[in-house]
């Protein structure tokens, strides 16, 4: 597609917010790994775009036990973080794609993309985003409830408490480009509580609260794994059937918890 959409190139977060939220609302171009091909193939219309590559929004910093990741941080950089975020980022695409795709772009991409929503949900990550009404903070679900990614909205950064331990396992073909059919992220916080989230077990990333409750009540990994099915709403897609997802979710929950050292 050779649309003549103008692209502005802000050189700071503030400029980026101003550019995205100005009328007409702009589409955010970060790594471009989804937007550019869609644009080439005429699957998306872009009136105006804002490229984040020079907005200095790709920092990753840690302070007071909290990690803050700029929305434009490439997955290759995120892959160097501890599990579950690092392991999940490492699982997306090949090295060339990882070098280009950003964590913010991933979060904003619809299923079956958007793997990073799983670990971030388990971590209880706080997203910070801007829209014409100002700057907002909230969890993954809050961001989605606000309408999620769309022209005029700019995800700024993602922050989470560095967990005591984290783990990530994925159901995917051992295949470089295969999309992940299902993944389980588990986190043990400083308080010792374990939180678990999955992608691919339901139409969008979800917490596995029943499994968490079993663990909190002193149950075993196996009991927690079995309980996880109650939180699933599996579906058929090109990657796996609903029946298979339901069947192996406990296996992957079990493996994530084993890895966590529960």
């Amino acid at each position: 597609m050779t649309s003549t959409a103008a692209v502005s190139m802000p050189s700071s977060e503030a400029e980026a917010v101003a550019a995205v939220t100005a009328q007409p609302f702009a589409t955010v171009l970060a790594g471009g790994t989804l937007l550019v091909p869609q644009h080439t193939l005429g699957q998306v219309e872009v009136e105006r775009a804002v490229w984040l590559g020079r907005a200095e929004m790709d920092g990753i910093s840690r302070s007071n036990g909290r990690m803050t990741v700029g929305a434009a941080a490439p997955l290759a950089a995120c892959a160097r973080l501890d599990a579950p975020v690092g392991a999940c980022a490492a699982d997306v695409g090949d090295n060339e794609v990882k070098a280009q795709a950003t964590i913010g772009g991933n979060i904003c991409s619809p299923a079956p993309y958007g793997d990073m929503r799983g670990p971030l949900l388990a971590l209880g990550a706080v997203l910070r985003w801007a829209d014409p009404d100002g700057t907002h903070t909230g969890g993954i679900a809050d961001f989605a409830a606000s309408g999620g990614a769309r022209p005029g909205v700019l995800l700024l950064d993602i922050a989470f408490a560095v967990p005591e331990a984290g783990s990530f396992v994925a159901l995917r073909r051992h295949h470089t480009q295969s999309l992940t059919a299902m993944s389980v992220s588990a986190v043990r916080g400083a308080d010792g509580n374990v939180t678990i989230a999955a992608t691919g077990a339901a139409p969008d990333a979800c917490r596995l609260l029943s499994a968490e409750a079993v663990l909190a009540g002193g149950g075993s990994i196996a009991e927690a794994a079995d309980a996880s099915v109650a939180d699933a709403d599996p579906y058929d897609d090109v990657l796996a059937s609903a029946a298979y997802r339901r069947r192996v979710l406990p296996v992957y929950v079990g493996r994530a918890l084993e890895q966590l050292g529960e």
């Binding site: 073909r173 051992h174 295949h175 470089t176 480009q177 295969s178 999309l179 058929d236 897609d237 090109v238 990657l239 059937s241």
Partner: peptide, 24 residues
């Protein structure tokens, strides 16, 4: 046709139709 014989859920690209890569 992953759900053969039905024609639903077809892989339309390299990340949903699995040509072997170096990884396997």
């Amino acid at each position: 046709y992953p759900y053969y014989p039905t024609a639903e859920h077809r892989g339309d690209g390299m990340n949903t139709y699995h040509v072997p890569t170096m990884a396997e």
